[in-house]
Simulated scan of single mutants.
Amino acid sequence: MRPNSEEPPYLLAAQAGSVVRHLYTRLRDDEPASPADLCRTIGALQRLADDLVNVLPGLQKQLEEGLLAGQVGAGDTPGEAWDKVSEVGYALAQARTGGLLLAAELRVSQRTLGELTSS
């Protein structure tokens, strides 16, 4: 992800999703890839997972700031709005935990694949 991009965050996320779907289509269609390509692909997915893990806390912070500024939850009572923001925060924290695990497993996969291709 480009940290100083002028693109809105949702467009960057959509672009990343599009790239992953394209990769999935290629894999589903059994398009051959060299071990080096596989290693680079796993590395790129690992970086994407790392980026996602770093973005999620910022999304939660923006949501909380939006709530405090009255931009979120205007139709709810304050308690209901905070409960909803809390639910989203919990889900984002769970997603971050999953992302950390995914990134770690991708690092192991990349390292093992690198060892396999070098032997």
Rank of each mutant, 00 (worst) to 15 (best):
T41Y: 07
R26L: 11
G75M: 09
R40F: 07
V55D: 07
A95P: 02
A16I: 06
S109R: 06
R111V: 07
S5K: 00
L52P: 02
T117V: 15
S109D: 02
S34T: 15
R111A: 14
E6D: 05
D50R: 00
L56S: 06
S118R: 15
A44I: 02
E115M: 01
N54M: 08
L68I: 06
G66H: 12
V72N: 01
Q60T: 12
S109T: 13
R47H: 15
Q110K: 09
Q94C: 00
K84S: 11
V19Y: 08
G75F: 05
A81N: 11
P8Q: 09
E115I: 05
A49S: 10
S34Q: 03
G114F: 08
R2P: 01
D37R: 13
V88Y: 09
E7T: 14
L92T: 04
S86E: 10
L27P: 07
M1I: 05
G70R: 12
E105V: 04
R47D: 11
T77H: 01
L100H: 10
A93F: 00
E80V: 05
T117Q: 14
T41F: 01
D50E: 09
G17H: 07
E64Y: 10
G66Y: 09
N54Q: 02
E6G: 07
L67I: 09
A93K: 01
A103S: 11
P9A: 10
A69Y: 01
G75T: 12
A81P: 00
